[in-house]
Design a protein around this nucleic acid. Structure first.
Length: 523
DNA sequence: CTCCGGTTGTTCGG
DNA sequence: CCGAACAACCGGAG
């Protein structure tokens, strides 16, 4: 005889967070297994829904994604109900109101999400609601990756690739959901659960980005990007043109991967299909598959490294005494450093919420070790707010990289805010587009307008110091000085870690005393 | 300990 | 367009 509990009608609550799609959605399949009712919800958490945390472009992308998800669910006889409030309060309310017996959601490894989900799971346990989670935001389970690396996340891409080789290919996408989904709440019960407008959420301005959210858009973009198989096979990330803005040099699928409107496993599977047909193709780390692996590498490191998002207390972050220079930070943030290449990139960030990877490198290097010597955490926060693909793990990881705080340590390789962009865009089309005040500056001075003779500035209707700022620092001088400061900071770190090793050896003289190879350097 | 390789630097000389 | 010098870091392999 079946236990009585199994006889109770199964009412599933599918909680969307990332993973805003119907394709390759194992949590959705889990939720409908034997379910009499399915309630699909998204919760607008006030923690995120504030302009200081999430800019209008990313929020707009999210709302478009929710609307698209809702219409796809509607086409299957279901609906997306948008809750407003803290998940820890809203979910218990609806699972009581709707008689929910099972809660399904996708694993999210982000710091905030882990704490939130742990709390929600506790509340579910108290309420007698079963919880079921699936890994589908990443190719692999990050815990398994770390386990196969001896219990800690790999710190180099090479080591990471070696672990993936041991794990074998990632899971294939799961089947699409059926054409009809179980019913949820209906009629007057759904009133107040629609997708809100920006204004309703306290965002007075409309989005300015050209990039749109939603699973439909993501799948169309994927198909479009993969239609040129030669391009896919020849893709080499560092060879892209960061100044291309009409037709970007990369796929711009990152916001869709961030929100899960595109499954990384579907993307991976489609890439593999194409590469099988091609005799020769590029490989990780520079290929498109390599880009998915970078994403995975950074998710893994972020999920399993304590204090990953901070310098203090991080075991992998170099301790660097950055300058607390508010004016420098604000000039960078507000696109008024006086270096057109840098300011144009920051304007692209503000208007589109997306820049080419190498463009991000230039402004990140400039803010930190290259020129302004401001902490990577400040720049990270700006990116986190304004990028449409802003994802804490990947964002912090890249800032750690560019500031030579972790993963990358060749701090004497500094991007020039003048010559780097010039290589790709000698006429400054990119600068002229994002900084219209410079549109009539002659090519010769477009990257260094302060060197233009006064008559030239007057003719271009752009007087440096009045219409466009003078350079905030002398790049040649400060970058040289900063390299010395970085060298000193690294040296101080080595001294500190040597002391830590000695102290550790004194504390634990038993066991592997001779040489102590097990002792990890603490920085 | 040494040595090697590291997604994406710049500048100069040819 | 290409290689070398520049100045020199790290983690990981051996």
């Amino acid at each position: 005889p079946l236990p009585l509990a199994n006889m109770a009608p199964l009412h599933s609550l599918l909680w969307f967070r990332k993973g805003l799609r119907l394709h390759d959605n194992p949590s959705l399949l889990r939720a409908i297994e034997g379910a009499e009712r399915l309630h699909a919800v998204f919760c607008l958490d006030p923690w995120f829904i504030r302009p200081e945390a999430v800019g209008v472009n990313r929020l707009s992308f999210l709302l478009e994604s929710l609307a698209d998800l809702h219409s796809s669910l509607q086409a299957r006889g279901s609906a997306l109900l948008v809750l407003r409030g803290k998940p820890e309060e809203e979910l218990p309310r609806v699972w009581q109101e709707w008689g929910v017996t099972r809660l399904c959601f996708e694993v999210d490894t982000e710091e905030y999400a882990r704490t939130r989900d742990l709390r929600v799971c506790e509340l579910a346990a108290q309420a007698g609601v079963d919880v079921s989670t699936c890994v589908s935001h990443t190719l692999y389970n990050v815990e398994q990756v770390a386990a196969r690396n001896g219990g800690s996340p790999p710190l180099t891409y090479k080591a990471f690739e070696a672990v993936l080789a041991k794990l074998g290919p990632p899971p294939l996408p799961v089947a699409d959901p059926p054409a009809r989904l179980p019913p949820g709440v209906a009629g007057s019960e759904v009133i107040g659960y629609g997708v809100p407008t920006l204004a309703e959420l306290g965002y007075p301005l409309q989005a300015t980005t050209v990039f749109k959210g939603g699973e439909s858009v993501a799948l169309a973009r994927l198909a479009d990007q993969l239609s040129d198989k030669g391009w896919v096979a020849a893709f080499e990330k560092p060879k892209g043109d960061p100044s291309a803005f009409i037709k970007p040099a990369t796929t711009v699928l990152s916001p869709h991967l961030k929100f899960g409107t595109l499954s990384c496993r579907l993307f991976y599977a489609r890439l593999q299909q194409i590469l099988l047909e091609k005799k020769q193709h590029t490989k990780p780390p520079v290929s498109l598959v390599g880009q998915l692996f970078w994403r995975e590498f950074f998710y893994c490191a972020a999920a399993l490294t304590p204090n990953f998002h901070r310098m203090e207390g991080s075991p992998i972050c170099r301790q660097i005494p950055w300058d607390d220079n508010e004016e420098f930070y604000r000039a960078w943030d507000e696109a008024r450093t006086g270096y057109p290449w840098i300011d144009a990139i920051m304007m692209q960030l503000r208007t589109q919420g997306w820049m080419h990877h190498l463009a991000r490198h230039c402004v990140a290097c400039f803010l930190t070790r290259g020129d302004l010597y401001v902490s990577w955490e400040r720049g990270r926060d700006t990116f986190d707010r304004l990028l449409i693909d802003g994802d804490p793990s990947i964002n912090s990881a890249n800032w750690l990289w560019l500031s030579a705080s972790a993963f990358f340590h060749q701090f004497h390789r500094v991007y020039s805010p003048i010559t780097f962009g010039k290589k790709y865009d000698p006429h400054g089309k990119y600068i002229r587009h994002f900084l219209p005040v410079l549109k009539d500056m002659p090519d010769k001075y477009i990257y260094e307008p302060w060197t233009a003779p006064p008559a030239v500035q007057a003719a271009a209707k752009c007087i440096v110091g009045t219409d466009y700022p003078r350079p905030i620092v002398d790049h040649a001088a400060v970058s040289r000085a900063n390299m010395v400061r970085m060298k000193d900071a690294y040296a101080a770190g080595r001294v500190a870690s040597a002391k830590a090793v000695i102290a550790g050896a004194k504390r634990a003289p038993v066991g592997g005393a001779a040489g102590g190879p097990a002792l990890k350097r603490a920085r």
